[in-house]
Each structure stands twice: as C-alpha cells, then as structure tokens.
Design a binder for these strands. Structure first.
Lengths: 363, 363
DNA sequence: TAGAGCCTGGACAACGTTGTCAGGTGGTTG
DNA sequence: CAACCACCTGACAACGTTGTCCAGGCTCTA
C-alpha cells in the first residue's frame, strides 16, 4: 500500500499524457533522454551560453529523436510577451486590405512577431469581440481599422500595456495613435479635377455615412464644389451600402432625371468598380474619378485618387513597434498623402463643354 | 531577521507585478477583491454552474472594477487546446489569397477559433520557418499552401496531433489531406477553347516550373495541343518568374519571330494582367485565355478559367475541423472544378482564320 | 600543492489558469 | 431530532517553460 501519506487534497489520477497536445515530448522528456537537467535543455533550446559542446550535442540528439518542439504557450506565460500582434480589419478579401495586412506582417516579421488577423465585416460588435479576444491572447499590440465609433472598451487594455494603433479611420472617444489617408484632401483634389475639366453637375456616391472616410470624402467633395462657386443638389449625393445593386441604382438615378450629372466621383474602390460597370452600359460618356486605385484601372483608363494601402499598414506597424520598444509620449497622428492619377475617365469633358483654357491641377 | 527558514534555493526577489503584462489583474486579484476563492472566479468567468447569483454579482463587479481579462495563454497551457489555426500562404497581398484566407477565417470563426496567417513569399525556408513557428504556438491545425516540395519536416507535428491540410498545391513527400483546383483540366479546356476558335499556334506563359500548378497547367496545355494533333514549338512555352518584365518579354518574343503565335494562354492571374497590358500596346489582335479570374476582367473582355479561391479555403478549413473533431481515416484529396468564362479575348479568331464549323466546348 | 576563480549543470519556484476533491451550509426527510 | 442530501465554495496540484541561485568540478596561479 504505497502512498499512505498523500497530501490532503490529492487530485484525481493525472490524465495520461495522451490527452494533451496529442502526447508531445516536453523538455523534461528531452532531459531524461539526454541524461541532463531540465534547465540545460532550456539553455540549448534558447541558445544560451554555458553548455559544453558535448552536452549540447547530446541534447540536440534527444530533441531530434523525440521530435521535441518548445511549447510557446508556456514560454509566453512565463515571459509575459507573446511576440504576436493583432490586426482587426474589415475584410481580408477586399483588395485594399490584403496589401495593408501584408505590410503589417512584414514589419512584424522584422521584429520577430507573428500576426493574427480578424475581419470585423464592418460590424462594431464583431470588431470589439475580435479585439478583446486578441487581448485575451495577450497580443503585445493591436492595430485596428475601426468599424465602430466607441473604443472606450479598449481603455483597460491600453492601460494594461497593449500598444494600440488605429488605421484608415480614427478611434472613437479615446485618444490614440492614428494613421490615416488624407481622404478630405484627396476627394477635394479629385472633384476639383473634374471641375477643371468643365463639369458643373457632379455626383458623389459614397459608403455608409457612419464610416469616417465616407464622410471626409463627402466633405472634400462639398468643399471643392463650394470653392468653385457651385451649388450642390441633394440628388447628386448618395451615401449607403456598397452593394452593387445600391450603387448601380444610384448611378442610374443621377444620370436620368431633369438635371443629370455629367461626372461622378466614386467614394471607394467598391463603388468605383460598380460605377464603371454601370457606365459601361450607357451610350453617354460620363466622366469618373474614383477614390482608391484598382488593379487594371490603367487599362480601363480610370482616373483615380490613389492611396497607398501598404504604406498605411507599414506606418501603423512601425508606430506600434516604436511604442512596444518603449516610446511613450502623446498620441501620434499621421495623414498620408493621396495621389491623383489621370488615366482618361476623369478627363472626359461634359457634353457641349468647350476645351478648358487652363491646365488642370494635378497633384 | 525574518525569513530565517527559507528554502534552500530561494529565488531572487520576485519581479514586481509591473514587469508583466504591464500589471494586469489576475483571477487571484479578482478573488481577493470580491472576497471569494480563486476557483469561484474561474467558475464565473467560464460561466460554469454552481455559483449563487449573489456571489456571481460580486465577482462580476470585481472583474469590471479591476478591468480583468482572462489570460488565454495560461488557459491554453492548462487545457492543451489553443482554439487557433495557422494558415501559411504565399502572399496575402495577392488578390487570389485574400478571399481564400477570408474563407478560412469564416470557418474558423464558426468553430470559435482564431486565424494566424503568414506569407511565405514563395520561399520554402520561410514556409518551414513559419509553419514550425505556428506549431510552437501550438495551433490546433495548420493549412499550408506549399512553397517547397518536401514537407517531411511536418511529420513530427502531424504525429503529435496537429491537423494539417494542404491547399492549392499538393504536399511533398508526405501523405496528407489536400484540396486543389483542377489545374490540368482547366488549362486543357482553356487551350481547347482557343483551338476550337481556329488557333494552331498557341503560346503558354506560366509560373516557375518548381510550382506544381504551373507544371499541371502546362501539362493541360500540352495535352490539349496533342489531342488536337498540333505540334508544340519550344518557342511557344515560357515558364519563369511572374515579374512584369519577364512576362512582357516572353509575350513580345512569342509575337515576333518567324512563326508568331496567334493566341496566348496565361498561367495565372499575375501573368494574365501583364499579358493584357503587353497586348494592349500591340496593333495585332491576339487571343488570350487566362487562368484565374480577375476583378474587372469582365469589362476588359478577358476570357478566363476561373477557380474559386474562397471555395478552396472553405473546403480546406472544413476538412481541417473535421479532423479536429476526430475524423481519422485515409488522407482525403479533393479537386475543385474550374469554369471557363468566355468574355471575348478567348474568342478572337486568328488572322485569316475562317469561322469554325463547330460550337466551342464550354465547360 | 593549496587556494581562488571560472565554468557547467541542476534544483526549485513561479507565471495564471483549470480539474479534482473535500468541507461546509442549509433544507428536507424518516 | 438525527440523518441525509444537494448545493456551493475553496484548497491544491498541474500544465511546460524560464529566472535565480547553488554545488561541484575543473583550471590556473602563487
């Protein structure tokens, strides 16, 4: 009868090794096999000094024959850093976010960190759920493309040391590092470009008004129109979902009616694509400038306001790691320039319009 | 003189709380604050039964006032499952992989798991480094789009219980679940389509020959040509990098020379894009069919062999979770159908070619 | 040859959580 | 009134790793 003097609260029989990680060897197993102490294995695995070449060889052999791989979960628990960062974006399938995510990944890789992405699908609840799940995993930092407008839920996390950077849209109700494109300036320049080519009735089709960039771009549109002394009709403005049906009917609405527009400004890449399709079916040649560059837009001759998605991601990630490396100061706000790329569609003149005397301003 | 009876190996003074996770409260802190035991907090956090409403309320209050969030690293260590899966792909910025990744994410989400992606940049070493890093994080499963041809390095991991599925390209030297598109069949159908429209001299421009899909598509091309009784000249085939310069010069080479091709088959989306650009500058109308659909290809009238990237990702992820749910049996191999979408560029007839008597086969 | 110093290796606790078991309380039943 | 039961709560160990400290063997010097 062994084990008479068990401690008062003996746990049940320990679960067999087979229940965990499908029976993975641990450092203890490696140590036993190599005939050394546990800590020596740890030293070898982490390339720490103080191990004789001979011992190291024995340990390496044991590692290989057992197929050991360090359990980073345990390591994280002990060290307090996970070497991973989280990225919450809208939709990884959107060609705008792919390059952004990739740029973040490259910076993370340079800092030895892995990237966990999640798509919010433009749903604030899902954004919060994702961001908090990443915090529970103890990511070292968080890059968020906001879907919602209230990020106070992140305050405890930030206070607890999770570096946080917002990209593409500003944070709501908290003060934090932010990297944006100049939506306002870009849209203003694009609309001014159309005006310079003789257009007076210009339509604006944008994303939902709860999205910051949509509002900013609309503001750019209004400013350009006002600067040119043009009055804007409500019929020329349409904000809402970027679903193809919605955009298509908006385009058709603006082109019919008593006072049809002669040019369109598309608020983002989704809108541009659908607008181009809608216009392709029309016999009238309508001018178009779109926000965001699109692949093959060069061949289709679509004039765009290009923003650099990769630069957004890279800049945000660099700021994040600056914080992780100890930079603490006031929140930083960066706005990246946009570039107008004339390719033809934005240089179409209105019906009956005469050639313009001045060269259009191209930024 | 306190602490006379310290244990023999007294560790140094414990690091202050501030050094870890930036001073985060733990369940112990919550328990102290709520005046309950540690385990009771755990029960509340995990919604386990057996807690009085009153106790639960006290604990909840303590959680909120402290801003507590469960440390999933510790949880993982204890439970042995991370509820996360890894995806190793080539380049998240490629419009083919964005939707694939997103589809995987959606399936993971439905199973309560997070997704960690990494880009291999088509480098076998980097693929291995990434995959093993993910294994060290103890992801429950791994989806790999192989860059290399030898995946024996994953054997210990798979044996240890990491469910693994290969997508888009088969695994090398190991037997594992695989989800592919029918590259061979798709390419054969595309080339047959060109032949049916009267072409006899057809060029093939593909990716590097070490990539499985590139080879399969070339095989499809050769088979279609042979089936039609056509001899293929070496000058009509070009495999290599998808860098624009390389592809452009391949196109130019095939169109000049004594025996210029009258049609091109482009081996993937990157090649198609560059080929379209190159052909746009030529006055000759050259027929083109591309593998992979591209955004706006409809407007440009590009005939393609479309594969469904999202379906690839979804199918692979579903198979992965089937394994994680206990399915064990022989490795499964799935090949997804491709679809030929005629849009004009593939229906251009060769110079001097007469209308074809038979309807072209469209799959 | 003895003493000092260096190098290597190992024992132990701790990271924050969860599974197991035992103790306590209050109510019901025989 | 005693015995029992159901329910709630908490003590403890364990998950696999790393940081700290000590022990022992070795080399080098005086």
């Amino acid at each position: 009868m062994a084990n008479t003097d068990r401690s008062p609260h003996t746990p049940g029989r320990p679960r067999g090794r087979e229940a965990r990680y499908g029976n993975r060897p641990t450092m203890k197993d490696v140590a036993a096999r190599a005939g050394v102490g546990l800590k020596t294995v740890s030293r070898v695995v982490n390339s720490e000094p103080g191990v004789t070449p001979d011992t190291e060889r024995r340990v390496q052999e044991a590692i290989e024959s057992l197929g050991f791989r360090r359990n980073d979960s345990a390591r994280v628990l002990r060290k307090g850093r996970t070497a991973s960062i989280g990225l919450v974006l809208e939709d990884l399938a959107d060609p705008f976010y792919g390059p952004l995510s990739r740029a973040v990944e490259e910076v993370a890789r340079a800092h030895g960190a892995l990237l966990i992405n999640g798509s919010s699908a433009e749903d604030p609840d899902r954004e919060q759920e994702l961001a908090l799940a990443l915090c529970a995993r103890r990511v070292d930092g968080l890059i968020v493309i906001p879907a919602g407008h209230d990020h106070r839920y992140l305050e405890p996390e930030i206070k607890a040391g999770v570096a946080t950077v917002f990209v593409d849209r500003p944070a709501g109700r908290i003060d934090a590092d932010t990297v944006l494109s100049d939506s306002f300036g870009g849209a203003r320049a694009g609309v001014a470009h159309l005006i310079a080519h003789g257009h007076r009735r210009i339509g604006f089709i944008g994303d939902q008004p709860r999205i910051h960039t949509a509002v900013e771009r609309l503001r750019g549109y209004r400013t350009a129109m006002r600067d040119a002394g043009l009055t804007v009709s409500d019929d020329w403005i349409s904000l809402g979902s970027t679903a193809p049906e919605r955009v298509r009917s908006a385009v058709e609405g603006m082109l019919s009616g008593p006072e049809p527009v002669t040019a369109l400004f598309a608020g983002n890449n989704r809108v541009t694509v659908t607008a181009v399709r809608a216009l392709a079916g029309s016999e009238r040649r309508t001018a178009l400038v779109g926000f965001d560059d699109i692949e093959l837009a060069d061949l289709l001759g679509i004039t765009v306001i290009a923003q650099d998605a990769a630069a957004l991601g890279r800049t945000a990630a660099e700021q994040l790691f600056r914080r992780l490396d100890g930079a603490n100061g006031e929140p930083v706000r960066v706005a990246l320039e946009t570039v107008l790329i004339p390719r033809g569609s934005g240089e179409i003149r209105p019906p009956g319009g005469r050639p313009d005397p001045v060269t259009p301003p191209v930024r």
